[in-house]
Amino acid sequence: MSSLNELEDMEKLRGLSWMVALSQGLGITMVILMGVWLNTYMGGFAWDGSGKEFNLHPLCMICGMVFLYGEAALVYRVFRQTEKLKAKIIHASLLLLAFIAIVVGLVAVFQFHHKMHITNMYSLHSWFGMITVLLFCLQFLLGFLSFLLPGARPSIRSFYLPLHQFFGGGILTLAVISVISGINEKLFFKYKGTGYSKLPASAVIANVCGLVTIGFVLTILYIIQKKEWQRKPASAEEEESLAIHFQPISGHGTDTE
């Protein structure tokens, strides 16, 4: 019976491997398409307040809010056998990289608007995007305080974990909506009155990038919601080691995420 259960677990994990591989292919393709679109058809990149600096905004946002955030969401599915604390550090490190990319992207767009005397936060895309960023920052902060900061009470972790998981998927969904609306807005500005309906090569690449982004996010959401692929609860020994790790600072508590 034990060997039969092991075979069933292997079959389930084989499906996980294929889905993770698919997500990585879509994610890398998404970033490449965005980079090619901006570099080839939108003028490239610079840090001079021009449209080239603005191009850093969509690239950084899709790398941070979508790709790196999606990668962070996969950590507890991919590193199933890794120690819980190490998995937490990998998860937090990816989120930190995402945060840095987001900050660079926001600075780029605000500097461009300032130099070109363009009003900030005037479109639905900008409102939606800023709400998504603020939720990401709040999620990052609360996650650190609840799951990584020594001294957090187990009861707080247990209470916040379902909310953390829910908003994780929700923020990723909001991020893809922000990306799609941003791509569409940029195309309308670029081809306003000049034949967007003729579908030039730039529009084709941008539209395909949008579709791949949706595919990437849907794949991530499918992986993280599938119960059979969730990481098994930490063993008593692992929980004890985490408690010992936190003991010098907090004096009590275990990690129940």
Rank of each mutant, 00 (worst) to 15 (best):
T119Y: 10
Y122M: 09
I131Y: 07
A108M: 06
P58H: 07
V104D: 08
I90H: 07
M42H: 14
E83M: 11
A236G: 00
M61H: 07
L68G: 06
M1Y: 10
E83N: 15
G170C: 05
V133P: 00
S202F: 05
G182V: 08
P162R: 06
G49N: 01
F144T: 11
Q139F: 04
C60R: 03
F54I: 06
E238Y: 04
L145V: 09
W18P: 03
G70E: 08
H164R: 01
I249D: 06
P154A: 02
C209Q: 15
V208S: 02
H245E: 05
S178N: 04
H125K: 09
K52V: 05
Q24L: 12
K186M: 12
H252D: 15
I28D: 05
W229H: 08
V179I: 12
L96I: 08
A203I: 13
H57G: 08
Q247W: 14
F99N: 10
H114N: 15
L85M: 12
Q165P: 04
H125S: 09
A201L: 15
C209A: 15
K186D: 10
G44K: 06
F159C: 13
E53R: 00
G43N: 09
S241M: 12
Q165N: 13
F144R: 11
L16G: 01
N55A: 02
T173N: 13
A72H: 04
F45D: 00
A101H: 01
V75A: 07
Q81V: 11
N5I: 00
M10W: 10
L56R: 15
N39P: 00
A152G: 06
I102E: 07
L172C: 06
S250Q: 13
K86C: 13
F144S: 12
V179W: 13
I90K: 02
D255G: 09
S158R: 15
L161D: 11
F166P: 01
H91K: 07
